[in-house]
Design a protein around this nucleic acid. Sequence first.
DNA 1: CTGAAAGCGCTTACAG
DNA 2: CTGAAAGCGCTTACAG
Lengths: 347, 347
Amino acid sequence: MNRPRPTSRDVARLAGVSRTTVSLVLNNVPDVKISPETRQRVLDAARRLNYYPDVSARRLVSGKTHTIALVWHRGPDATYRDAFLPGLLQGITRAARHYGYHLLFRPIDPDDPDEAYVELARGRHTDGLVLSGPRSDDPSLLELYRDGFPLVLHGQLPGTEVPSVDVDNVRGAIQAVHHLLSLGHRRIGMITNAPLAYISSRQRLDGYRQALEAAGLTYDPELVQFGNFDEESGRKAMLSLLDLPTPPTAVFVASDMVAIGALRAILDHGLRVPEDIAIVGFDDIAAARFVSPPLTTIRVPAFGLGWTAGELLIRIIEQDQPEHTQVLLETELIVRRSCGAKEGGGK
Amino acid sequence: MNRPRPTSRDVARLAGVSRTTVSLVLNNVPDVKISPETRQRVLDAARRLNYYPDVSARRLVSGKTHTIALVWHRGPDATYRDAFLPGLLQGITRAARHYGYHLLFRPIDPDDPDEAYVELARGRHTDGLVLSGPRSDDPSLLELYRDGFPLVLHGQLPGTEVPSVDVDNVRGAIQAVHHLLSLGHRRIGMITNAPLAYISSRQRLDGYRQALEAAGLTYDPELVQFGNFDEESGRKAMLSLLDLPTPPTAVFVASDMVAIGALRAILDHGLRVPEDIAIVGFDDIAAARFVSPPLTTIRVPAFGLGWTAGELLIRIIEQDQPEHTQVLLETELIVRRSCGAKEGGGK
DNA sequence: CTGAAAGCGCTTACAG
DNA sequence: CTGAAAGCGCTTACAG
């Protein structure tokens, strides 16, 4: 800026008090007696000068930044994950604002070193980190955690106690398959959202299996194909399912993007959805509403994940000992037309 | 963190040098002669201690934060704007990283005071601001600008010299209408993306008009309806157009969201797209690919807008005197099926 | 009730 | 080549 910024010294001079008093008044320090007149003089002076305390100085002395960061890994599933970014970001920033924190957004591109985010913690840019899409073999992460640096994962790191927030993939998959079962389907295929190296993929498959078994059906590996985040993978996987001697009458596709590809494959094959084959997706991305027929799916609460992760992190930062540090959020079944149910379910 | 962070004093002690030397070595200050042995000792000590300089202290002395902020106004068009957020954010953070800057993300919710972002500038949280979706009547904005605080608008503030980056709405609309003209349409309607209070809306309407007039057609207000960001507004607007004694054979809808509503209205009316009525949208949101028929549209370069805004801002911060401080980015015509063109255009 | 002083952790003239 | 000292702009014991 052109004119030099006013400092607390300038305010003190104008108000005719010491810098101590300026600080005391402006920070509204409790249990300190300052005459209303003095207080008012300080306030007026600060306003006249358009004074804002320098946040770096303040951070230096307090040792707190009142900032958290969202570290956003852009992996091979970047396009897919982008669908959730606005909701997640809104949730996390809302939580941050609510507790008086700022939010630093730090994407990690594939060509960044994996531990590019470490400086945010060690250099005291932030008081804590939300890590989204972490790689489970990241040693820097566990090191930070062991050093007591506040951390929350968006996702899960099985076998650790690192605090995390995720969607309940198992129950979500159960909801999806249960819905199909309730519509009378017995031969239900599945296409995963991703290779099984992804934990969400394993969990959704697990839910599928549990739902079948709870209904007294046996799990048939022949009916399971593997998607890989995008439409094309869904198209191919569906083609394999259609090639079966007895194709399924319904399929649970654990990702809307993949489901859209599967849908296309069915339609291209001259079959109808839901009459010949019913589909339930997962995620409820925006596009799910717009395809024909609109996709029945399992909604992932992006805003809720963001809010919960942000709040949990801040509570950890402020030593507020949260009871649960590994949180799973519920999904919601969104019935549209691709499953053949009437609104409100039923056969 | 549990154990106290190491400071430059600790590094100095371990390396057997002064803090000055530590700073000189770690910052790679040029034109200063330090023996390779000393240098190495410092580097080793820093590594041994896992030392990261405290960024607040550094900022305090340098007066620079190496941080920019994206201020994101969530207005009535929040849902619409969210479609561009991931791309914009990626562009802006890429530019930031490229120049060694961090990115603070600051949404302004409708219930926030309008000037909630001012503290980011005045309190020295950041060296500069990208403001997205600014209200033209915001006095704090012009005040900051006059005080010389680095600012770039995503959007435009007509009648000012505030640096800005936006898409060329006029030319985008011309592309759309020109495409329809080239397909032989003469009676082309328009539905705006938003009320005319929005500058993008005025500009797109202007482009529509220019394209018609360049083709020797007269502008007919009867053929123009007003959208309001969402599907429902597009549905209603289209209904009005269909009610005309002679409905248009093609319509340019200056927003994909609105266009999707218009599409629905046409289909519900028992007409076909593109055979009875052709449509061209604007924005190229993800959903445009998924509707039936897929929507021909004008692509807005979200990543490019972000990158350009970020880079421009940083050049202003670093006093790099950019030649142009008000940038318009080109759009791109994306031909899909809703216009009836074959791939590559032509009648 | 209010002020002088120390200190947060760095960087940067300035000496030697 | 390297170190002692000042200072960035705050806050916070500690005196009075």
